[in-house]
Amino acid sequence: MAEQNTHLSSLLQKNEQSLLTQWIEAQQRVIGTKISPQELKIQCMDFLRLMVEATHQDKSTSIDGPAWVTAKKMLAEVSKSRTNQGFSPSQTALFVFSLKRPLFDLLRKELVDRPNEFADAIWAITQILDQLGLYTAEMHQRSREEVINRQQADMLELSTPVVKLWDGILALPMIGTLDSNRTQIVMESLLQKIMETESEIAIIDITGVPTVDTLVAQHLIKTVTAARLMGTECIISGIRPQIAATIVHLGVELGNIATKSTLADAFKLALSRTGRSVSKTTTHSPATGMRK
């Protein structure tokens, strides 16, 4: 079987041009105009050249050897660029798999009178190309995962601001779905800020939280308890009717945590607990207020 690869290397080199044309055609039939013809041609040419080199150096049917390193690197790049262009995994893997047909046609022409060698060669090429194809798909998935991880990290960073409403009153507007990871960060940043500002009251606003399940409720209670341990009282605001219903249906016990329906109500309560109040000034006239 190893002997067949010597054959493959020279075969590839001899018929590079015709292979290339057929290969590119086969790809364009499926993926259409998603990628420019020039770019595709350059990628195909590079890969064929690398494959000739690799099959020349490495006579086995495995792609784990050092000879395949550059070819694999090139494949990883191709797969990454296709991921960014919005290709599906199968479309990306097609880059390699579509080489089969032209290669098999070529072999049939060359080895028409030697069926045994033909069968062996087909097997060897299938093995190599399948491995390369799977590698491409794997790379595609990996670059997708990288994108997802980066977005997750971005989301964590941008979504946990702790704002100061008044002397001694903090607000934490929560937005998006709460999971353990995010809640941990939210809890830490809130407690840190409480310590820095020595605030007596923290308002946790969950208007932007789409759903509350037992886990989210538990996280909320934990945050409130931790804040209480530090000597700060928490008010939860922005509970929508559906969420209130969910909390009751789930049987979650919010204990003696103060809850208000809007941030404004919570702020008012916070002010009154710190011995302050909001009142209208008598000189205020609505017209100037509007124009201001």
Binding site: M187, L191, M195, K222, T225, A226, R228, L229, M230, G231
Partner: peptide
Amino acid sequence: VGMQPAVAITLVELGLS
């Protein structure tokens, strides 16, 4: 008085409220 954030989190995680 003066409990550190890390201490508060630990106590809550330990279930000691």
